[in-house]
Design a protein around this nucleic acid. Structure first.
Length: 213
DNA sequence: ATCCCGAGGG
DNA sequence: CCCTCTGGAT
């Protein structure tokens, strides 16, 4: 896709995307980190439902440690993968307190050293909490980037680098949300709604499927 | 490559 | 019933 098409693509997504009533809810950098960690292979709606009560009790790593793994599990039982997530969250809090004075580090290596935090989660925290120019490639973005031809790649890292090369830094955070919303509501995994897609004309897959066969 | 693992949609 | 959801660790 050429730069002009990229601009048109995102300009259209910006005006087309539905009200993002479903975004992760957090009130601090720590809550952001915890919410993103818990959101792996889970919808943000289910994560918000759990973190609402969890963060009321444990809004800091210290309070999370006091709550303990069993206490965390009680709050996040409705989320998938809850046992490993509770263990990771508690151990991550331990490291935050021991190594980072209970603060979320502005450092990729330090973030990825936390249990349950990989490149995708670190990218979200670095971008949203600290304004660093990163692009977190989740399942939606990986699919949309490949299907549309926006930034094809065999691995999430390859797609990430392609998107960083093509998207103006100023748009990175918004583009991240637009791509996810587009992936969730229009460019769905199973059955992409190409007939209702507003960026179809900019999309490899959309142009093909729009043709009579 | 496989496991973790509940909720929601088709 | 099967697949998917803002992945990460082994």
């Amino acid at each position: 896709m050429k730069p002009a098409a990229i601009d048109a693509f995102f300009a259209t997504l910006q005006t087309a995307n539905p009200t993002p009533e479903t975004e992760l809810v957090f009130a601090s950098r720590f809550e952001l980190l915890a919410a993103v960690l818990l959101s792996a292979q889970a919808t943000d709606v289910s994560v918000n439902k759990a973190t609402r009560a969890l963060f009321a009790v444990a809004p800091t790593p210290e309070r999370m440690l006091k709550l303990g793994e069993a206490g965390v599990i009680e709050h996040i039982k409705t989320i998938g993968l809850f046992r490993s997530k509770a263990k990771h969250l508690i151990q991550a809090c331990r490291l935050l307190v021991e190594r980072h004075h209970g603060q979320v580090p502005r450092d990729r290596e330090a973030l990825e050293a936390l249990p349950g935090v990989g490149r995708k989660t670190a990218n979200v925290v670095l971008n949203v909490a600290f304004g660093e120019p990163t692009m977190a490639v989740d399942t939606h973005i990986f699919r949309v980037a490949n299907r549309t031809g926006l930034a094809p790649g065999k691995t999430p890292l390859a797609v990430e680098q392609g998107l960083l090369r093509r998207i103006p830094v100023r748009y990175l955070e918004d583009a991240h949300h637009w791509l996810i919303l587009h992936g969730r509501y229009v460019c769905q995994a199973r059955k992409p709604l190409c007939h209702a897609c507003q960026v179809r004309t900019h999309c490899d897959h959309g142009r093909l499927t729009a043709m009579p066969s």
